[in-house]
């Protein structure tokens, strides 16, 4: 994969997306949860961009926001553009399942009482849906009888292929894979990732949401590092190498250095909770480069060496 293969205009642009919820706490207080704050990302046709962040940090909400399926009490601000058009609830409703497809996390996202084939077919609204579904099952090496099975009868690997095939069956231009490889056998992981890469090579834009840095590096062109509800750096996958000297943000560097095959240096502390975000840079409390300006305000994203970073000190 080279830069030239990706088109210039992004298929999806997300600008300053914030999502918050209100939650009742112990006692009599209620708190606002800032799940995602000022997140910006762009996804281009023909590339895989990975959103890399630790488990349970609210990455899935990004996917739900793009698809327009957040719960009604979520408060959302910011801008999203798809193919140059602003995303509105109405346009999202017509895009999801046609232009934008989701590859979900696990088998629990399939209706337990519906045969698998039928769950793949509704995504297709034109042509002979059964024929297309069979063709796609064949492409993903799913035996002919698979369409008659119920989700609980699938093996882990088959389930994965079915989930990817649902996205493939839609002819979507944007595929969002939300943590598609949790706790799977390495060969299944490899296979699933290969399928996603294949979709990108065919011209789709693929947004891969994952906590698995190895998975991200294997297929992604670019990697957006997600921390405490925002992307603190968008780097080229190739930047993750050596002593991390090409990476821009101290957190990305720390992440890379913490890997066993690198220096295995653990990062102290933990991510702030969404109900108690620091006022300045979100990484400031754990950052060795922390200074006055870091405590005062959140750094705006700026371009640096072909990527984006939110850090006053990055150079």
């Amino acid at each position: 994969m080279t830069e030239t293969q990706t088109s210039i205009m992004p298929l999806l642009e997300v600008c300053n997306l914030s999502i918050s919820f209100t939650q009742y706490m112990e006692g009599l207080r209620q708190k606002s949860l800032q799940a995602i704050s000022n997140l910006s990302i762009d996804v281009r046709a023909g590339e895989v961009i990975a959103v890399l962040g630790s488990s349970g940090s609210g990455k899935s909400l990004l996917a739900h926001a793009i698809l327009g399926i957040l719960p009604s009490n979520a408060m959302i601000s910011g801008k999203m553009r798809y193919a140059g058009e602003n995303l509105t609830p109405e346009s999202q409703a017509s895009l999801r399942g046609r232009e934008i497809a989701l590859v979900p996390q696990s088998i629990s996202f399939l209706d337990p009482l519906m045969r698998v084939g039928e769950q793949v077919r509704p995504s297709m609204r034109n042509g002979n849906s059964s024929a297309i579904q069979r063709e796609i099952f064949a492409r993903y090496h799913l035996a002919a009888g698979t369409e008659r099975l119920f989700p609980f009868q699938l093996s882990g690997g088959m389930a994965r292929r079915v989930l990817v095939s649902i996205a493939a069956a839609t002819n979507a231009r944007l595929v969002i894979a939300d943590e598609p490889t949790p706790g799977l056998h390495p060969t299944v992981v490899k296979e699933t990732l290969a399928h996603l890469r294949e979709l990108a090579d065919e011209g789709d834009a693929v947004l891969l949401i994952t906590h698995d840095i190895a998975a991200a590096l294997e297929i992604a062109n670019r990697i957006a590092v997600f921390y405490a509800g925002t992307t603190i750096e968008i780097a080229l996958a190739s930047d993750f190498s050596g002593e991390a000297e090409l990476l821009r943000h101290p957190y990305s560097k720390a992440l890379w250095q913490a890997l066993p095959q690198n220096n295995f240096i653990p990062l102290q502390g933990s991510q702030p909770y969404p109900d108690a975000l620091p006022p300045g840079c979100l990484f400031e409390p754990r950052c060795q480069l922390s200074s006055h300006e870091c405590k005062a305000a959140q750094p705006e994203p700026r371009h640096l060496r072909g990527g984006t970073v939110r850090c006053f000190h990055a150079a």
Partner: peptide, 13 residues
Amino acid sequence: SNYVLFARAKGES
């Protein structure tokens, strides 16, 4: 449930 969430992501409503 997750499967209804996914169904909505597939454009059903």
